[in-house]
Design a protein around this nucleic acid. Structure first.
Length: 637
RNA sequence: GCUGAUGUGGCUCAGAGGUAGAGCAGCGCACUCGUAAUGCGCAGGUCGUCGGUUCAAAUCCGACCAUCAGCUCCA
């Protein structure tokens, strides 16, 4: 029998007899690994533990600690879910059931509408089946056999999937107990591993993600190797929900969402302070980066929107109005206004790149089901800019914008990921133009050495884009910044510049936003800081709390002095105990509370209580103001 | 828009056919207080909206609106 050389991730090597399976390999390393092993990677391919080695191989064994191990574990959990559902609701047809970040789901087609109570029953059934320790066994079959097998079981969706595979594809199925599913695998050894499982929610999901297809019932769940891990996870979810910007927004008095204006958030005084600070910072940075600020109207006439292509390509998202019997539209984007600005005068190649920026309020008709706090609204302000440039300036300008986005996000401590979105179905312009634009964006990303994923067909109707995504408290990502390269709009509006040769040429343009929408960015910001804003951003930077009524005058005198120094201060002069005032201040997440009683009044000091550190002792008023201004200047830089 | 769930005072929630209740917040009074909730009292709700069933509806039924989760779509 042949000897096989196995190399492990740490570089160590071991010899095994041909046909040895991974379980035995794990056992040879340690009993514990054999117990915890879920799946393995052999020469780059993910396999089951009973995969038999046939040649020399690099072997990695995965446990629940590894992402791959988790993934396999959750995928097997999805199979267990399907088995449980079929046991309880035999007429159910199966869609697909993959592992996802933090869990898994399975899509079902059933006459019966699942209820939250059903989820409990299904969960109990999963646990029961888990106790049976049913083994997952793999079987390979030819395409026709597979079609026949699933046809017999009336699994229409599975048949549809198989029919889309290439003709010579080897199809595999996995069976546990008397449940068999179409699946590439791999899977964990048996269902007994799944001891901690929780079905979390129920939702409709279109078959293969298309609105045109029937809607299936999707059950979401998660599972862990140990009960304690599940509990920890559920606790973490609860904690994350406390950071929800919708909750904190009301609690902290930043904004409000009312039934009278779905998707039209109302900003309250404290929210406006935050918003204005962001805009101030934005303006400062944009002047530095060579942008000129403009403001274009919210309403423009029909002809202009026809020219821009929005009338044909974006109508379903737009709001309309009539003025003096003429059609007008409320802008869903700022670009056409930007075009009108460029067209105001003749431009020389010497002026380019010309960077015009606009904090523009746009309105878009979003589907009612898509609305979400400040993250997805129907009216929002984009921190827009349109850069008009020579073709040879494209890469540098894109790189400049990438740097600016990075600077902004780093300032707030955001981590983000980048996507490159390509030509959508509803697009203007030729494939060549699109390809040219997409290549230019890709080149800039490569030169910047950014990791990015390609988002097919998700570009704007006038051009491809680089999207910057930020995460909310639950790890859902939202597109914020975007850079779009556009050869078409300058054409549509017949934009020109006079080149070195004295002739007219067509400029290229970039549409870009950094925050994306101020509203969305604020939503992310609230969740990121859990409402505890750094001092420079805090709507109220310090609150002065008086100990007794007789200290109120001193408190107000201090407040006046601090306000005159540009600090945002409030006084709590209510006739309440200091512990109570402090509690409320702490819940309001104020960076500083200044407690003033007889002692402070006599010494002309304030007793400082810092949000993060508690009581830090008394300092003179002047000293406190100086320190705070220094802190703010440092943060706001 | 689709699927499911939810909607009770400013906020968090109880009440599940007999005509609305608590805590917090608010207001008043007393206490004048030293680092996360002082006590007492008062006021506040056409129970999302409209319609139906019933002697009687917050409660049962229907439609609509809004919100939440997900799908789809997007900054």
């Amino acid at each position: 029998m042949a000897i096989i050389n196995v190399t492990f991730p740490d570089g160590s090597k071991k010899e095994f007899a041909e046909g040895t399976n991974i379980r035995e390999v794990a056992k040879s390393i340690s009993g514990r690994l054999a117990k915890e092993a879920l799946a393995a990677e052999v020469n780059g391919k993910i396999v089951d533990l009973n995969y038999q080695l046939k040649e020399d191989a690099a072997v990695k064994i995965f446990t629940f600690q590894d992402n791959q191990g988790k993934h396999v574990f959750r995928h097997s959990s999805a199979h267990l879910l399907a088995e449980a559902v079929l046991n309880l609701f035999p007429d159910t047809k199966l869609g697909i059931g993959p592992a996802i970040e933090d869990g898994f789901y399975y899509d079902f087609d059933s006459e019966h509408t699942f209820t939250p109570e059903d989820l409990e029953k299904i969960e109990a059934e999963m646990i029961r089946l888990g106790k049976e320790k049913q083994e997952f066994t793999r079987k390979e079959l030819a395409k026709e056999e597979a079609v026949e097998y699933f046809n017999d079981k009336d699994e229409d969706y599975k048949v549809e999937l198989i029919k889309d595979f290439p003709p010579d594809e080897i199809i595999s199925t996995y069976t546990q107990g008397n449940f068999t599913d179409l699946c590439a695998g791999p899977h964990i050894p048996n269902t007994g591993y799944i001891k901690a499982v929780k079905l979390l929610s129920l939702a409709g999901a279109y078959w293969r993600g298309s609105e045109k297809n029937p809607q299936l019932q999707r059950i979401y769940g998660t599972s862990f190797a140990k009960k304690s891990q599940l509990e920890e996870y559920l606790e973490k979810l609860e904690e994350a929900k406390k950071r929800d910007h919708r909750k904190l927004g009301t609690q902290l008095g930043l904004f409000t969402l009312v039934e009278e204006g779905p998707g039209f958030p109302i900003f309250l005084p404290k929210g406006m302070v935050l918003r204005n600070l962001l805009e101030d910072y934005w303006r400062k940075e944009h002047v530095k980066a060579g942008y000129l600020e403009i403001k274009t109207p919210i309403i423009l006439n029909r002809g202009m929107w026809e020219r821009s292509g929005h009338w044909d390509h974006y109508q379903e998202n737009m709001y309309f109005t009539t003025i003096d019997e003429q059609d007008f539209a409320i802008k869903p984007m700022n670009c056409p206004g930007g075009m009108l600005v460029y067209r105001q005068e003749q431009h020389s190649y010497r002026e380019l790149p010309l960077r015009t920026a606009e904090l523009g309020l746009v309105h878009r008709h979003e589907m009612s089901g898509a609305l979400h706090g400040l993250m997805r609204v129907r009216a929002f302000t984009q921190d827009d800019a349109h850069i008009f440039m020579l073709p040879e300036q494209i890469t540098d300008e894109i790189k400049g914008v990438i740097d600016l986005v990075d600077k902004f996000y780093k300032k707030f401590g955001f981590s983000y990921h980048v996507e490159l979105s390509t030509k959508p179905e509803k697009a203007m312009g030729s494939d060549e133009t699109w390809e040219k634009a997409t290549d230019a964006l890709e080149l800039a990303l490569k030169e910047k050495e950014f990791d990015y994923v390609i988002n097919e067909g998700d570009g704007a109707f006038y051009g491809p884009k680089i999207d910057f995504h930020l995460e909310d408290c639950l790890g859902r990502t939202w597109q914020c910044g975007t850079i779009q390269l556009d050869f078409l709009m300058p054409e549509k509006f017949d934009l020109t510049y006079i080149g070195e040769d004295g002739n007219k040429h067509r400029p290229v343009m970039i549409h870009r936003v950094i925050f994306g929408s101020i509203e969305r960015f604020i939503g992310i910001l609230i969740e990121h800081y859990a409402g505890a804003f750094p001092t420079w951003l805090a709507p109220v930077q310090a609150k002065i709390l008086s100990i007794a009524d007789r200290n109120n005058e001193y408190a107000h005198r201090l407040a006046k002095e601090m306000s005159e120094n540009g600090l945002r201060v409030e006084v709590d002069d209510r006739n309440e105990k200091i512990g109570y005032k402090i509690r409320q201040g702490q819940l309001a997440k104020l960076p500083y509370m200044l407690i003033v009683g007889d002692k402070e009044e006599n010494d002309k000091t304030v007793a400082v209580r810092k949000r993060s550190e508690g009581d830090i002792g008394a300092v003179s008023v002047g000293q406190f103001i100086t320190d705070m201004l220094a802190e703010i200047a440092g943060e706001a830089r």
